[in-house]
Design a protein around this nucleic acid. Structure first.
Length: 227
DNA sequence: AACCGTGTCAACCGCGGCACC
DNA sequence: GGGTGCCGCGGTTGACACGGT
């Protein structure tokens, strides 16, 4: 029997106050991330470690990019979702400054609806009915239709079956890569907006590194990688 | 102005994976 | 090899905002 992640009694829940945010920020600035379980006590917060981690990652981290998603970001999400399924953390890893939660929310509230209205099944990116608007005009619509065209005929880009499980997506991805799909997609996790010093350090070392490593470190915009 | 339906998004919950002993 | 603890992920919930009637 798994123990609950924290003592549910005596821990705050719900929205974070400014004071709580400040405590968390101060603590992480001083001690760095990690040890989430012991962090709340050390930082003087009546929260469980998970809650602290989530708050930091999704909201307080200094490199978070807030605000609306750009068209290029939306296109990228659609393409990555077609390849990876609901692996939001991997998708978010390709969108600097975006969190998995934000990507997931944006997908569920905007993109999913959009695809459905176009007659596209958001689970497998397959055209499952006559689109309401016959001639797509926006970039994302074009992106989606290009996914279709990349995919020869109307075969789903990823065959997710009934469950939309990620392992299926991953194996299908492998199949696709072995097949004729010519996408140069590196799926290793990229840290969103690493500290400048780190980037510089990596740049220096990349002079002697392999081409793959160079590509990994020199990717300012994910779309460069994809397309 | 009040009510209701819908959309959005921050936060929670439970589970799986991994590391350590 | 099995048990335990922690972290991270994805699904879900619930509060709030907003627009329509």
């Amino acid at each position: 029997m798994r123990k609950p992640c924290c003592d549910k009694e005596g821990t705050n829940k719900g929205a974070w106050s400014k004071q709580e945010d400040q405590k968390l920020i101060d603590y992480i600035r001083t001690h760095g991330e990690g040890c989430w379980r012991s962090l709340p006590k050390a930082a003087g917060l009546d929260r469980c470690g998970k809650s602290c981690r989530l708050r930091w990652i999704n909201y307080l981290r200094p490199d978070i990019k807030r605000g609306n998603f750009g068209q290029d970001e939306e296109d990228l999400i659609i393409k990555l979702h077609a390849l990876l399924g609901n692996r939001w953390s991997l998708i978010a890893g390709r969108l600097p400054g975006r969190t998995d939660n934000e990507v997931k929310n944006y997908w569920n509230s905007h993109i999913r609806r959009k695809l459905i209205s176009m007659g596209i099944d958001p689970k497998n990116h397959r055209l499952n009915q006559i689109p309401l608007r016959p001639q797509p005009k926006s970039v994302s619509e074009a992106a989606t239709s290009s996914s279709e065209s990349m995919n020869h005929e109307s075969k789903p880009l990823i065959s997710l079956g009934n469950t939309d499980r990620v392992s299926d997506a991953a194996s299908s991805l492998e199949d696709e890569m072995c097949g004729s799909l010519d996408l140069n997609l590196d799926l290793t996790i990229a840290f969103p907006s690493p500290p400048v010093a780190l980037v510089e350090e990596k740049r220096q070392s990349s002079k002697t590194s392999t081409r793959a490593e160079q590509m990994e470190s020199d990717q300012p915009v994910p779309t460069l990688f994809l397309f």
